[in-house]
Write a protein that binds this DNA or RNA. Structure first.
Lengths: 179, 179
DNA sequence: AACCTATATGCACATAATTGCATGATATTT
DNA sequence: AAATATCATGCAATTATGTGCATATAGGTT
């Protein structure tokens, strides 16, 4: 699983609590690898057991104590080995495309609405990507780590704007059926 | 899970054996929803238990008997209900993007190779889609079911050609680092 | 003769992901 | 005053997915 590696990668940047990581997986790295907070906490426990992170509790008053996780040398080794290994092809699983594939068994107006919803989701993501790009990358001088993130972000922007275009076409094509 | 529904959808077209379905999930519907043959057989057993498919063994000589699965009325009901329900957003999980995100912890030439491999995979998929489009859809008069499949295929083609373009850019951007 | 591919089904085990719940304080909004 | 959001952790149960193996025959390849 690459969830372990995704977490370790986040921790190379700075030590973090599970809560911080969960938020990171709701944005930034979460754009490329989704994970829920339960997944993150469970994986952190495993990483701790394997000695890939060093976890220490910080006393807090008024709210639960935080547990700060720091990547160990062994953890950095794991990241390095992972980075050399070939990438798995992301497995496709898209209900919307299955429904188009199954158009004969589907109510067209309902499907059209679902396409509209999906279109909005992609537009929202695209807007979010643009905000991040403007705020953190445009007109700034970037180090290597930032350049990498910018490349990933740029790919995200291309994909999302392509999806917006493609979904528009699909909606048009759907409208032409029985018209 | 929508694997059940994807299988049922395939069976609305014609009754099939698990083997036939597994092959279908290696191509056509598999472009939109990936599943291995083990997943298919397991899910078929469940569908049979729930009475959503009707399974009967066909005697064969020289090779194992086939079990032909036919969708039942209950199965068609399930497909209909599913088609009305909102689609889940496909969850992103792409190691390659994580590696770009983590560029500081990655060896650039190695990553470049991985990007090249991915580029080839997308080119191959794009070529496959074009072959299917030419063979089954171009210049043909299409019924509603075929039009739906064509819309899905067209989206696939857009996505793949976008990915080819985007990966090219990413490789260029990566080449400009430390150059 | 040994090996590979296609046909055809499926079990067992392991790993991963989702869903729902539980706790409990403080701060902000309606 | 009540409801919601933020902070912060995690268990338990279920569902989904992946890996490896098992079986058995026909036909073609090296």
């Amino acid at each position: 699983m690459a969830l372990a590696e995704a977490i370790l990668v986040c921790l190379t940047d700075r030590p973090m609590s599970g809560y911080d990581l969960a938020k990171t997986f709701d944005a930034s790295i979460g754009f490329f690898w989704r994970a829920s907070h339960q997944q993150v906490y469970r994986e952190l426990a495993r990483l701790r057991d394997k000695g890939l992170v060093d976890s220490r509790e910080i006393e807090q008053s008024g709210r639960p104590n935080r547990i700060i996780h720091t990547i160990t040398d062994a953890g950095e080794g794991v990241v390095h080995i992972w980075s050399q290994k070939p990438c798995r092809v992301p497995s496709v699983k898209d209900e919307l495309l299955v429904k188009l594939y199954a158009l004969d068994n589907v109510d067209i107006p309902v499907l059209r609405e679902q396409l509209d919803i999906r279109l909005d989701q992609h537009r929202a993501k695209l807007a979010a990507y643009f905000r991040i790009k403007e705020k953190f990358y445009d007109g700034k001088s970037l180090n290597r780590a930032q350049k990498g993130k910018l490349i990933a972000l740029t790919m995200g922007i291309s994909n999302e704007s392509e999806m917006v275009k493609t979904l528009g076409n699909a909606i048009t094509m759907l409208g032409e059926i029985d018209a």
